[in-house]
Design a protein around this nucleic acid. Structure first.
Length: 778
DNA sequence: CGTACTAGTCTTTTT
DNA sequence: GACTAGTACG
């Protein structure tokens, strides 16, 4: 049993505890994938378990892929028949076989978030719901949370009692469900929910899978939601050989329904569970670990554990504060370029992490400017680009005639002179006849009021029919090519003068290569499978490991990865931790951000650089943010705190007031944690809420920064919370530059600013933010 | 029916 | 600031 010798005693213990429930609390970098891989190998090799009986659930396809390869190399062969997959792809596989029990067609389509939004929009229109009152997004996220908790729309309605808003959402939930059912479509959450429903409704199906999956392993268990928990519980309830691996300190998906008590209460649910803690870290230097431990220690709700390493102290953590986000980007690229030049690292060993995708733009520009090879993970998913969604909509139309959404998307793409009015007429007809949109199109000549457009519809239907006949004989690549040439999609792009037409064509070619690769790999693969696979890819899945490129991604995206050099950009209050978490009345919101910081820090093996900018443009507003509390939570002796060049902050050659050489760097660390700033009142040490600037108007562009700084100062003085109270009150008469005179009806304090409701004599009631509106009291 | 402009919204984070 | 949906016009 040679391969067990490479494990430490704890790891070995986890590997060999094969029977019964097992909770592995695996700190960052403690070799948990290693343990899982060895455990699978051990089950097969030593315990004689049939690979067929093993199920391993990972978070991403990439992780699944990696696990399978590593098992393969360890045990030779036999790993093929292990189910290693994500929750979502596993559910798709199960549902494809059995969903007819629930009254769906087995070739159901999967709706992504965009699709769901489109459906919801149509519902809003149809039920004439005012999206000022409630937003589609809000409804969808309520539905999604309900599904994460396995709450059906009936239960939802019951729970909300007489709450009007809840009632509206409940009704929309029901309508939404019906719409999806009609389209024979499932959204992401449904994949889990319907599988649970299937298992509950069809015990013989459940038993079938219980027999099959006698040994179940779940990775990243801290990120499972209630529905996923139920799914796993059902599967494991017969043999109880359930092994879950996770780290409560790395739970960062609460917004997606992750239920941290799944891991915290595992021992309550499975009293006979064995618990193994992995605390030896094989990844990072002691300094990095100390920093991570110090930060996470500020959280209250956690299982106590502490990482250690025998790797040695390592460098101190580099903290750099720069003036602007531009300089931040330059600092990153300069540092990477320098280190590579000196032979200290290669591009592929570096990663830049940030809180929000929006931050990637400036960084990307710097990488382009410096000619440093890079890869951005995340942002707009490849498969959600317009041109890709268009082509996929053709495939979906070919494949699932009830997918109204797909049909409507492409009926006039490329332009066929089939406009909104026609689409509406067809929709009405479909609704009245109880037909799908496509079925209605097939009867175009019977639809009243269409006139000669009917022939265009018929032409469209015939085209789709031709594609359908090709489906059986063609591979997916050929089918896509046929779609492109018949519709003239690419031709239209080539002729268009749109700036990004070339990129689009490039993307379509990329899609064709992916289809080709699919055709080759999955000789049995059907169009249905291709579409399902495509809707379940995460961005991280397509990252090539061996490319020598710097990876840029969000902190969320970085979970599970490691790099020799890590840069965390935007370590500022209001950015990371983000505004929303700072103002959340629930204090655990900040704890989630802190876990994210913990994840970020522990990605680094050797060198960790944290950057923060004094000034940054967010959503068109210039913000001046204090250094992130997470930086301050790192013991000072672990930081090099090298000031980022003691320049004065200038703009257009003008010196800005309030910045003295080096003053900030010193003060930032002396001030007490969490915004209790020293007595000096320059804008930088104001709390985030004091630092939001009014939108810059064209008239005062030139010296805008110094103006902004000056007014920031006065804002701090004016209100203790940093938000200037407008110089008027409810009942006052005010003058607005555009709307004229009016009466103030209401003033309320929002997180960012005072919200003022004014009844204007000329234009009626308007709601506006005080800082923007610049109302004058009369 | 299609285009060109305007107004409003938006950002956390993702399978 | 960037994007998108909505609207007015040709």
């Amino acid at each position: 049993m040679g391969y067990l010798d490479t494990l430490n005693p704890r790891q070995k213990e986890a590997v060999m505890a094969t029977d019964g429930p097992l909770l592995i609390l695996a700190g960052a970098g403690s070799g948990k994938t290693r343990v899982l891989v060895h455990r699978i190998a051990y089950l097969i090799d030593k315990e004689g378990v049939n690979p067929w009986n093993i199920l391993a659930i990972t978070f991403t396809n990439k992780a699944a892929e990696e696990m399978r390869t590593r098992v393969d190399t360890l045990i030779g062969q036999g790993a093929d028949s292990i189910w290693v997959s994500t929750f979502h792809s596993m559910c798709v596989r199960i549902l494809r076989r059995h969903i007819d029990i629930l009254g769906y067609d087995n070739n159901f389509t999967i709706y992504d978030t965009d699709d769901s939004k489109t459906v919801m929009k149509e519902l809003f229109k149809r039920l004439s719901i005012d999206n000022k009152y409630i937003k589609e997004r809000a409804v969808l996220s309520a539905i999604s949370s309900a599904k994460d908790e396995l709450i059906s729309c009936e239960e939802y309605k019951k729970n909300c009692g007489s709450d009007y808003r809840g009632e509206v959402i409940g009704n929309l939930y029901a309508e939404y469900e019906e719409a999806l059912h009609k389209a024979n479509a499932l959204d992401f959450d449904d994949l889990i929910v319907k599988t649970v429903e299937l298992f509950r409704r069809a015990p013989q199906v459940l038993e079938n899978y219980q027999e099959r999956f006698r040994y179940i392993m779940v990775d990243e268990y801290q990120d499972t939601n209630t529905a996923q928990f139920e799914l796993v519980s059902l599967l494991a309830s017969k043999y109880r050989n359930l092994c879950v691996v996770g780290d409560d300190d790395q739970s960062i998906y609460k917004f997606r329904g992750a239920n941290i008590s799944n891991i915290l209460d595992f021992e309550k649910v499975y009293p006979e569970a064995k618990v193994v803690k992995l605390e030896q870290n094989y990844r990072s230097t002691q300094n990095i670990l100390d920093a991570a431990n110090a930060v996470i220690a500020n959280n209250s709700e956690r299982k106590d554990k502490s990482l250690w390493t025998d790797k040695g102290q390592g460098s101190r953590i580099h903290f750099r504060q720069v003036d602007t986000a531009y300089e931040e980007a330059d600092a990153v690229t300069d540092d990477i370029a320098g280190a590579v030049r000196k032979g200290q690292t290669r591009y592929g060993d570096c990663a830049v992490l940030y809180r929000t995708n929006a931050q990637s733009r400036l960084l990307e520009e710097a990488f382009v400017r410096e000619g440093i090879p890079y890869n951005i993970v995340g942002g707009v998913n490849f498969y959600s680009r317009r041109e890709i969604k268009d082509i996929l909509a053709y495939l979906k139309t070919i494949e699932n005639a009830s997918d109204d959404l797909a049909v409507k998307r492409i009926i006039n793409v490329p332009k066929r002179s089939i406009g909104q009015t026609t689409v509406n007429k067809v929709s009405d007809y479909a609704l009245s006849q109880g037909l799908s949109f496509f079925a209605a199109l097939c009867e175009a000549d019977r639809i009243p009021g269409l006139g000669k457009t009917a022939s265009k519809l018929t032409a469209f239907v015939n085209m789709i029919r031709v594609f359908r006949s090709e489906e059986d004989m063609f591979g997916i690549r050929q089918l896509i090519e046929s779609v492109i040439s018949t519709t003239g999609y690419v031709k239209e792009l080539e002729e268009s003068d749109e700036e990004d037409a070339e990129d689009r064509i490039e993307n379509i070619n990329e899609l064709i290569s992916k289809a080709e690769a699919y055709d080759e790999e999955e000789s049995e693969g059907t169009l249905t499978d291709f579409l399902a696979e495509v809707s379940l890819v995460a961005d991280i899945d397509s990252v090539e490991d061996d490319a020598d490129k710097v990876l840029l991604m969000t902190l969320h995206g970085a979970k599970g990865l490691e790099f020799s050099r890590v840069y965390i950009a935007g370590a500022e209050e209001g950015v990371f931790p983000g505004m929303a978490s700072i103002y959340d009345e629930d204090p655990t919101a900040i704890e989630e951000e802190r876990r994210l910081a913990y994840v970020g820090i522990t990605r680094a093996k050797d060198e960790l650089t944290i950057l923060s900018a004094k000034m940054r443009m967010i959503r068109g507003e210039t913000q001046y943010n204090a250094v992130s509390r997470f930086v301050k939570e790192i013991p000072e002796e672990l930081l090099d705190n090298r000031p980022a060049g003691n320049r004065q902050l200038t703009y257009d050659g003008q010196r800005l007031d309030g910045y003295e050489e080096g003053s900030y760097e010193r003060n930032a660390f002396k001030s007490s944690p969490y915004g209790g700033y020293a007595d000096r009142s320059d804008a930088f040490r104001a709390r985030p809420k004091a630092t939001i600037r009014p939108k810059i108007t064209p008239e005062d562009t030139k010296p805008y920064i110094s103006k902004a700084v000056a007014s920031a100062g006065s804002a701090v003085k004016a209100g203790g919370n940093g938000i200037t109270h407008p110089g008027y009150d409810v009942g006052d008469r005010v003058l607005h530059t555009k709307y004229g005179e009016g009466t103030v009806k209401n003033i309320s304090l929002e997180p960012r600013d005072y919200k003022v409701t004014v009844e204007f004599d000329a234009v009626g009631q308007k709601i506006m933010y005080a800082a923007f509106a610049k109302l004058k009291k009369l």
